[in-house]
Amino acid sequence: MNRVVAIAINTFREAIREKLLAVILVFACGLIAASFGVGKLSLHEELRVIRDLGLGGISLFSKVLAVVAGVNLVYKEIERKTLYAFIPKPIHRWQFIVGKYLGLVVTLTAQMALMSGVLALTLLAQDAAPDGALVRALVLLWAEALVVTAVAVFFSTFSTPLLSGIFTAGIIGIGRSTPELHALITSQLKDVPGLQTTLDWATQLVPDLHLFYVSGSMVGGKWVTVNAGDFISWSYVAGASGYGALYAACVLALAMAIFARRDFV
């Protein structure tokens, strides 16, 4: 465990010194804070605009940060040969992947906490405090970012950052559209049951990221929004987070299996 923690701490220290990630983070915080000004332009809808823009910004930039950091995570170690000093040490290869992932989780958590802090301050500037609904929405976004990070790390174990980025972006796009995809498959392919079943199974392999961004959509036949009183419950958050943790664990297990068999030439 000590070795995993050592790798995680090193990953965190490296990530917080990464200039590109810092620039993205500053830009994200600026955009979230700018929602205060945009809110002023609306007609008595300041809080709704701040919440929607803030959550949207955190959702977008947390994934950008997860993809940028994740796709480089293992590839950079192999390319720069920094890995050569680690693998001959008394660590298992899977410990390296777990340590790197945990380091990135800590980094993303810190970055999302900072963005959430900016959103809270923006709300306070509008004489409103962050409520439970907003916190639940943020926890869901955090869980989603961890799933996206796991997917990016998985691709990073065998592909270049560019390809890994494209693959991960594709997974995010499909994952966010799972309800629409299911509806499309059901309505358009009802006459071809074999293909319909195959595509249904294929969509099961992609993470259902729609579970994590529910504000302004139907959940269990009910319209939910972070701006209304009856937003999703903590039990929904726990269920979705559990699904995310399980999915991330499976993807990381695959990443570890690939990494364990790789030659570092």
Partner: peptide, 18 residues
């Protein structure tokens, strides 16, 4: 065995931030 072995790679590259 790795606990009892030291290794210097060819043209070593280490973490620049450390």
């Amino acid at each position: 065995a790795k606990r009892r072995v030291g290794f210097l790679p060819e043209t070593p590259y280490f973490y620049e931030h450390l």
